[in-house]
Design a protein around this nucleic acid. Structure first.
Lengths: 241, 241
DNA sequence: TAGTGGTCTAGACCACAAA
DNA sequence: TTGTGGTCTAGACCACTAA
């Protein structure tokens, strides 16, 4: 039900309630969604409020409307997922692998000239450096080097455990939400270090990705370099005209 | 002004009018947009209608709202461009190169089993095959193999000229608009053929992209395989949480 | 014809920013 | 204090779908 005393808008509360019914599987793809009239009655809010909540579900791609027929639960498409920021664990599980992690290095360092410009910090300012080897079904898949602005997540390297999601930790312990990211993707040849870490031959093709992640306040918070095994890893994305 | 007799909704007419003021440059980034109250008065519509039009401008990224301050014209950001379908020519010019093209093959073929599933055609149905070498400042940059459903663009291989954009040709001569695409990105090692075409050593890192493009009616129309030189080509994209 | 979503009105009160 | 956008109400009429 809608909490009338909450500072959260009615439409947003309703949105979350309706979304839960879909993501929990209570309503399945193709099912008809409760009509606007039913929602008015059930939740005792005006039609504009109901429509505002439904607009958000439509924007999320969770439902679609057909004039004269009703509102229906959408069939999830792979495409919708393609440009989302996904954790390595999520990514591997989607592909049917079991994800594992080895921590190769975790230390607080001082920002060098290169990082200063990328993460908008001052030279010498503290950064958290984390180097991890990512495994899929116990085989090396990717090598990841993360640099975080330590100021926003002090002590994160002590809190981090291999089975944790860095993303979740940032959100739950520090209230830092990764909202957007930009990335550059290149194909490179494995140098000795990378080859050894990933158990491939020197010179093997590597999918190299540099990502800068931003908080919901549009502040750069993480710089990530990833070396994926070219023979094992595929990146998907979607384009619009 | 709003045409009250049009079948086009008021909010949509208003949206187009306001958008025109921005894209024409009459309103510049950072400028304050007319307030909702002003728009009510000027266009003699209700506030809900004004807000619906403004919602669309916000969704387009053309304006942003600040409670208590007003609505402002947004600064176009590079990031917004990152997930757009871009032609090779556009792409190279953005980077400051001069784009060139050599046609290596252009012929009508019959769909084999692999293509049948990708482009949703029948086995043996006609497809247009086009193999092009892409140059940046006269250096080989990428090797592209396009497969088009010939039925939607009969005779396109005769109409195509090296300095043309395939995308423009499809739109202008056949009314086919490429609206969305999905792509897979991998790092591979150059085999003999690819190495020779791109003037790199065999085994050099190649950024390999497979793209399926869809029309605005969501019909698959083109299958594109691209081999980019790893030492020269970088792919950019943007992610959301 | 009954029921659905699409559009539109004319108000109201609120939170927030700036003077 | 004034003006802005944010939220909300209680209606209305319309276009479309399906029975």
């Amino acid at each position: 039900m809608i909490n009338r005393d909450s500072r959260e808008p009615y439409y947003y509360q309703l949105y979350r309630l309706l979304r839960e019914d879909i993501t929990s599987g209570k309503l399945k793809p193709g099912d008809m969604h409760p009509t606007e009239a039913e929602l008015l009655e059930t939740f005792q809010v005006s039609r504009a409020t109901v429509r505002q909540a439904l607009d958000m579900l439509v924007a999320d791609g969770l439902v679609f409307r057909q004039r004269g027929r009703g509102t229906f639960i959408a069939r999830p498409t792979v495409e919708k997922e393609l440009n989302r920021i996904v954790s390595f664990t999520e990514d591997m599980e989607r592909l049917g692998f079991t994800a594992g992690t080895q921590i190769l290095a975790a230390e607080v360092q001082q920002a060098d000239e290169a990082i200063v410009h990328i993460l908008d910090v001052n030279r010498g300012q503290e950064i958290a450096y984390l180097k991890r080897l990512r495994l899929a079904d116990d085989d090396p898949m990717s090598l990841e080097e993360s640099v975080l602005v330590h100021h926003y997540c002090p002590g994160i390297l002590d809190a981090y455990q291999p089975h944790h999601s860095l993303r979740q930790l940032l959100q739950q312990q520090y209230g830092v939400v990764l909202a957007t990211a930009t990335q550059k993707v290149r194909a490179i040849s494995a140098d000795e270090t990378v080859a050894e870490s990933l158990s491939v031959d020197e010179g093997a093709a590597i999918l190299y990705i540099e990502r800068i992640s931003f908080t919901d306040a549009n502040v750069p918070i993480e710089f990530l370099k990833t070396y994926h095994r070219g023979d094992k890893y595929t990146l998907y994305n979607e384009l619009r005209a």
